[in-house]
Each structure stands twice: as structure tokens, then as C-alpha cells.
Amino acid sequence: MWRFRQFLGSVMSLSVWSVLFTSQTDLFGYNRSEMISYIFVAALLQGLILASALHGLAQRIYSGEISTLLLKPISLFSYFAVEEIADKARNVFFTIIESGILIVLFQPQIILPPSEVFALFLLWALGGVLLNFLFSLLFGTLGFWSPETWGPKFLFFIFVDFSAGKLFPLNILPDWLQSILFFTPFPYLTFMQTQLFLGKIPVDEIAFHSTILLIWIILFTIANKYLWQKGLRSYAAQGQ
């Protein structure tokens, strides 16, 4: 169902923007091809970056389900990473099929970047994957201390949908709102990668954004390490 929702979201976005561009050649700094490319790249990145097998991690921890994983002769995080990779592979596979259907239906002109930008795009996408993995692990730690794991995760997902640029490009928003969003790591979960793909990031800013992405990854790795150590120290389960 989640994949079907993503597909419908892409169909809706493509329909809305196609209609809007019938009477305009340029909207919010995007031409028709750029906007259509944005939707396709964002859809692909959602499958790659935002899809996660760890949605129910906090519940698994609170219910004691991870006890059996802790006893296995494999690192807990390696196990989660493999689960995550498998889930992403499945999602990307279906996203490619869905994109094929959308290409046949809408026959868009998709802008492709030069090969060196594409290589950097893949690197940033990998950074986004890592960042989202760290977010999922961080939310998982809620399960060590609270049974209330569903609500915060739901709110977080809604916020990410918007702040990662999944619903629409962030640069159509008022400047003050963009400034606030760029103080958070969320634009690095889809939006910045699409901007790089479309060539909308000046060359002299690429190093800056790469550094910011790296800093967020390091910060969340430290936060995860601290909270998981603390959580596992207070973790107890019986009857598994």
C-alpha cells in the first residue's frame, strides 16, 4: 500500500505541475522539464533514501523482540543495515517500474547531469541513506524508555515528507521558511540531491553542502552511539 501511495503521489504531482505549466514557461525558477525531472528524481530518492525497514524498531525494542537479535553472533547494527539494504533494494526496484509507467504516460523530457555531477549525486544520495538510517536508529531508542513510539514517528514522517522536498521543491517556499529549514538536516534527505542533479547548486557551494551533510552524519552517529549505549544498559527482557 505504501508503494501505491507513493505512485499516486507522483501521478498527482506530475498532473498538477503539467497543468500549471500549460500557461507558464517558468514557475518558481523551474521550467517544465526541470520540474518534471525534479518529480522523477525525488520519487527515486524516496525509494532509496526515505524508505526504511526500521519503522517499527522502537516497538520491537519496547516489546523485547530485539532480545533474540542481541543473542545472535552478529552485530545488531549490521543486522539492521542488512534489513535496510534489502528493503531499499525492493523499493528502488518498484520505483524504477513505476517510473517506467509514468514515463510512458507523461512522456517527459528528463534532464540528465554531466557524469561528474552524477557521481557526486550518487555520493550525496548515499549520505542521505546513511542520515535516514541514523534517524531511524535514533527513533528506535525511544523504545528503551517509552511505550509511546508510534506518535512521534508519525509526526516525524509527516514533517520529513514536507521538509525533505517530497511534496514540492523547498525553494518555492517563502525565504524565511527556507532559512529555518536549512538549519535542519532534513533538506539533505532528498531536496539537496535533486538540486544537485538539476544543476541548481553553484559549483562553489558544493563543497560547503558536502561538509554540512558530513557534519550531520557525524553528529547523529555520536548521538546514536550515546543513546544506544545508555538504552542497552537499561534494557531488560524476559520470557522471550
Partner: peptide
């Protein structure tokens, strides 16, 4: 959290429509 999430999504949708209305003079004629 559920209601906050739903309200947030609703207002973001509204903001999107307002931005479109402010920028685009005609939609589909």
C-alpha cells in the same frame, strides 16, 4: 502527535495552494 501531524500536513497543503494562487494567474485556462 497524530492530530499535530495531520494538521501540519493540511496546512502545508494549504500553503502550497496559496503559493500557487499567488504566483499563477490561470490554471488550465
Amino acid at each position: 502527535f497524530f492530530l499535530l501531524g495531520k494538521a501540519f500536513r493540511f496546512f502545508m497543503g494549504l500553503l502550497f495552494l496559496l503559493l500557487i494562487k499567488r504566483t499563477v494567474s490561470t490554471v488550465g485556462g
